Amino acid sequence: HNLTITQGKLFFHYNPKLCLSEIHKMEEVSGTKGRQERNDIALKTNGDQASCENELLKFSYIRTSFDKILLRWEPYWPPDFRDLLGFMLFYKEAPYQNVTEFDGQDACGSNSWTVVDIDPPLRSNDPKSQNHPGWLMRGLKPWTQYAIFVKTLVTFSDERRTYGAKSDIIYVQTDATNPSVPLDPISVSNSSSQIILKWKPPSDPNGNITHYLVFWERQAEDSELFELDYCLKGLKLPSRTWSPPFESEDSQKHNQSEYEDSAGECCSCPKTDSQILKELEESSFRKTFEDYLHNVVFVPRKTSSGTGAEDPRPSRKRRSLGDVGNVTVAVPTVAAFPNTSSTSVPTSPEEHRPFEKVVNKESLVISGLRHFTGYRIELQACNQDTPEERCSVAAYVSARTMPEAKADDIVGPVTHEIFENNVVHLMWQEPKEPNGLIVLYEVSYRRYGDEELHLCVSRKHFALERGCRLRGLSPGNYSVRIRATSLAGNGSWTEPTYFYVTDYLDVPSNIA
């Protein structure tokens, strides 16, 4: 807008934040220059609390790290170098490059900038070799853009010569660093050979998330399962459950009422301010606690030095998902009996873990797994792929695949051998790939016309006998059925096997 004052003059007093240069501009645009008398524009009460600059400061050096910015700028000295009290560095987070010096300023003089007072450097006698002032900004957020400017702080001049310097606002972004852990990993099994893994992005990506790394490792069953005799009275049979499938998407929606109208769909109840505040506090606490764990609990591995020492970490090797089922080394339970199943799973520490690289999504279907087997899954978020990966501390989750139908069934015939004193040795093959492992066998036998009897055969007993022995049988026709019990439950009964026990007292003698 054009402003013209045809008559009258300007009068400025007691404006401590208004620089004289701005008042002189007002004289020019209003056409009143030359009308004012000496005392109409006070030299001592206008701009006496402001830094009124008329020179431009330029930054000469900028260096960044993930949490620091090192700045240096060209030296500046007023005509009387004693008038320079120091520099004021202003900075704040700036997602967009549209910041002005006066953003967030209120009537009390406060604003949204963080201000650092910096002492002037030592003055050199040689004007050509003056030290460049600077400042190291610490405690910054990774991968965050900051708006920065600097200006001088000078003393009051009796001659009211307006001098000083100020830089333009520059924008500097800190470097990326390792992201925080992925949030809320959930693993479920939808079949006997697959596990579905879902997660949420890290709360602090500290860069642009480029991919996720998912490692999985087959877990050995508890050692007590191999040692305890679950045929003993009072000892509860062990059981394991597989990871249940995901709930429906509708039930997972946030901010939804727990109660549904019987007449149909209901609208979600909005969260109160107290609920939102509580969630923010919980989120802040979780982030602080995660940072504490990362800094205190997890110790970084030592990389190899120039002395030739090897990095103890196993090298990563990509495998196809079809090879995942046989990740671990199978060892027989008892070496003397080769027909026992290889369900003991000690994992070799030198073995390469299978892994998958996930790009542009937060889910993965891990296939080719062994049925009813526990897996430990390790999830890392990465925001750099080359020249070397920059990934987060791992988040861990466990899951067990679903049982395989008929995996616990005894394959092959049940054979028998009759000894003296009416002892019958029953023999059968253990299931080759049971659900988890076989903890015991149930032997059901009966003599024709009598009630059915049951015998429990422990895992250890089966390994020693290759089956079991029935003792003290009365003469007669017998039928026997056997079924295995694994961590997933009972298998199917075998087809009945028949044998006849004679009275050993009636056996004919070869003595003449």
Rank of each mutant, 00 (worst) to 15 (best):
P205R: 12
P205H: 04
N206W: 11
G207H: 03
N208T: 07
H211G: 08
F215W: 01
W216E: 02
W216T: 05
E217F: 06
E221H: 15
F226R: 13
L228R: 09
D229V: 05
D229E: 05
Y230H: 03
C231E: 02
C231W: 03
L232H: 12
K233N: 14
G234E: 14
L235Y: 07
P238L: 07
R240H: 07
W242C: 02
S243E: 04
P244Y: 13
P245H: 10
P245N: 05
P245S: 12
F246I: 10
S248T: 06
S251W: 02
S251R: 10
S251A: 06
N255H: 05
Q256D: 13
Y259P: 08
S262R: 13
G264Y: 06
S268E: 12
C269P: 07
S274V: 07
Q275T: 11
Q275F: 09
Q275S: 07
I276W: 09
L277I: 11
L277F: 11
K278M: 06
E281F: 14
E281M: 06
E282T: 08
E282A: 13
S283T: 07
S283H: 13
S284D: 14
K287I: 07
T288S: 07
F289A: 05
E290T: 08
D291P: 07
Y292H: 04
H294Y: 05
F298I: 11
V299S: 09
P300D: 15
P300C: 09
P300E: 09
R301E: 04
T303Y: 15
T307K: 13
R313G: 03
R313N: 05
P314K: 13
S315T: 14
K317R: 09
R318C: 09
R318N: 09
R319V: 08
V324M: 10
G325R: 04
V327M: 08
V327I: 05
T328S: 15
A330R: 02
V331P: 15
V331R: 11
P332L: 10
A335S: 08
A336I: 08
A336L: 12
V345G: 06
V345S: 11
P346S: 12
T347P: 09
T347Q: 08
T347K: 08
T347Y: 11
P349V: 03
P349D: 15
H352T: 04
F355P: 05
F355K: 14
F355G: 09
E356H: 11
E356Q: 10
V359M: 14
N360D: 03
K361T: 10
K361N: 11
K361V: 06
E362D: 15
V365S: 09
S367D: 06
S367V: 11
G368I: 04
G368P: 11
R370T: 00
I377G: 04
I377E: 00
L379V: 06
E388I: 11
C391A: 02
V393I: 10
A394E: 07
A394T: 11
V397A: 13
A399N: 04
A399R: 06
R400P: 01
T401K: 00
T401E: 03
P403M: 07
E404T: 05
D408T: 01
D408N: 13
I410N: 02
I410H: 05
P413M: 12
T415W: 03
H416F: 06
E417M: 05
E420N: 09
N421L: 11
N421T: 10
N422A: 15
V423G: 15
H425R: 11
M427H: 04
M427P: 01
E433H: 03
N435A: 02
L437S: 01
I438V: 13
V439I: 08
Y441Q: 01
E442I: 07
E442Y: 15
E442S: 10
V443I: 09
Y445D: 00
Y445N: 02
D450K: 06
E452M: 08
E452P: 15
L453G: 09
H454M: 15
L455C: 12
C456R: 03
C456N: 01
C456I: 02
V457H: 03
V457W: 04
S458M: 07
R459T: 05
K460C: 09
K460P: 10
H461I: 12
H461F: 13
F462S: 04
R466H: 12
G467Q: 04
G467Y: 04
C468A: 06
L470Q: 01
L473M: 09
G476Y: 00
N477D: 07
Y478K: 00
R481S: 05
R481A: 12
R481V: 09
R483Y: 02
T485G: 01
L487M: 10
L487V: 07
A488S: 07
G489R: 10
N490W: 15
G491S: 08
G491H: 02
G491V: 01
S492E: 11
E495L: 04
E495Q: 06
T497R: 14
T497W: 10
Y500R: 08
T502K: 07
D503S: 12
L505S: 09
D506Q: 15
